[in-house]
Design a protein around this nucleic acid. Sequence first.
DNA 1: ATTGATATATATCGATTCGATATATAAGGG
DNA 2: CCCTTATATATCGAATCGATATATATCAAT
Lengths: 191, 191
Amino acid sequence: MDVKTLCLAVLSHRPASGYEIKKALEEGPYAYFYRASFGSIYPALARLLGAGLVTVQAETRDRRPDKKIYHLTTEGRRALIDALHGDPAPDYFRSDFVLMMFHADLLDERHRRKLLDDRIAWLKQALDCVTKEIPFDEARKELCAGVGPDFVRGLGRAVYAAELYFLEANRDRILGRTSQTAPAAASTEGR
Amino acid sequence: MDVKTLCLAVLSHRPASGYEIKKALEEGPYAYFYRASFGSIYPALARLLGAGLVTVQAETRDRRPDKKIYHLTTEGRRALIDALHGDPAPDYFRSDFVLMMFHADLLDERHRRKLLDDRIAWLKQALDCVTKEIPFDEARKELCAGVGPDFVRGLGRAVYAAELYFLEANRDRILGRTSQTAPAAASTEGR
DNA sequence: ATTGATATATATCGATTCGATATATAAGGG
DNA sequence: CCCTTATATATCGAATCGATATATATCAAT
């Protein structure tokens, strides 16, 4: 699924600016399963505009740069629905954390510990967010309402909780046995 | 982490051709947490060669195109270790499946069911692979040996199992309540 | 014989995306 | 003044993608 479709998806909730689309993708529920940079959002919006799948209205604000609000057209909505009914591409997952853990034998103890601690902290924070339903503002709330978002929230919770549980249950395994520090250091820190 | 580092990581196990690197990334344990295309692997290898982080030896084979085997240099190994000790970038995760489920209200019942069924089947197959330790050949076996790979395998298993469990426990929720087909059709298929 | 599929190999193309940067505005702090 | 953060639009050069090209093999179907 390309960034054009992603923008259509965000706009299916409500009209938004390019910046707001980025925010939804970065801080809203989409952040857990998609991502896009300004470098791809603006050209994608330009293409959507050219294709008649969105329209744009400029809003002038005092002492601020103009704001462009993009609206989904009927054709745009249809294009989105078509795309959502296509075959899903395989998940795209890249994780430095996992790559580093995979090469644990090349890592020093300190770094291994830091990776685990940071990951555990991040998972706890993410679980907190997902569980809480982020009620920051109306636009954010709207994105989170419905059976689909509920389902995805539950899925995210399940997966993050499983990872957290696994990391906490197995951290000693990765910290102890591949230690390359002196045995004395290992025995005081491995326990 | 860029594709250069990824190639160094694969080569840290044993020398390999560009094609073999791709295979390791596509079918070996790396497939679950990284990915790269030929379009990025070959240019990355060229850059690594230019930087002296790898060397290459051409092997002539009868009636076959030459095979280029890339070897990690000492500097290459050092560069890899440095990269692995850096700060991990945030995970990059994109999922058409999750995006589609998030927009379940826009999907017809048939498509929703297909998405779930296919995903569940894929998860089962992936769990099977991860559990089995893929003992296809020596090169593959080598990639899977050690505390790091064990840890990552366990992590993958935990996460996939959690997702599978969640999907099986909640499929009726996503199939039933957002149905937009006639009530009669829903009641015969929802069960 | 040809075609299609699959496999092992190297390589590259045009399109897309990334991450950083630029610009324009605001506010606050050192 | 500079830096940081925020709200906005936009673009750059580098990296990556997915498809394609080329070169070889084997096997199966027509």
